[in-house]
Amino acid sequence: MIQDAVFLVISLCAVAGAAGVVFAQRLFHAVLSLALCLLSVAAIYITLGAEFLAVIQVLVYAGGVVVLFLFAVMLTKSDLQLKREPLDTFAPVSAVLFGVLVLFYIARTGFVAHGERGAAPGDVASVGQVIFSPTKYALPFELVGILLLAAMVGAIYLARRDERW
């Protein structure tokens, strides 16, 4: 009972945050509602027993990505070009249609849940064993590391201000 209420409140926060991202007039408010949405998703992970992912979500998204977006809003002066974006008539209609279609197919698909919620351990040790085990995700893990390095080099190269090296 209480768990249902908790789930409901968290999901409402997540959806409200997501709506704020898309509909907030000022871009700075949009980034703050993105933060609300991402923190709610972290709370969703906790209800699923995935505490490692919840912590990583807060660390990477709320601490890193959101701050990056705040920087982007400030540096591109996006909030100062406040023109009301003209609303397409077809975009909302097609979005609602798409949503209805997705929900319809989810309702038709029979997901077979083998266990209860939280059946999988979500602590740091068990997730680490999956990520680092050579038979499972060790190779993708290394590849993600190379990808991050490439992304870092690329971002620095793109964002540099002067042409000389």
Binding site: L53, G115, G122, Q129
Partner: peptide, 17 residues
């Protein structure tokens, strides 16, 4: 979480990265 395998969480952490 519902199927009792941790693999999905490992995948999700890659998605975050």
């Amino acid at each position: 979480s519902y199927s009792g395998t941790v693999a999905g969480q490992g995948l999700a952490s890659f998605v975050i990265a």
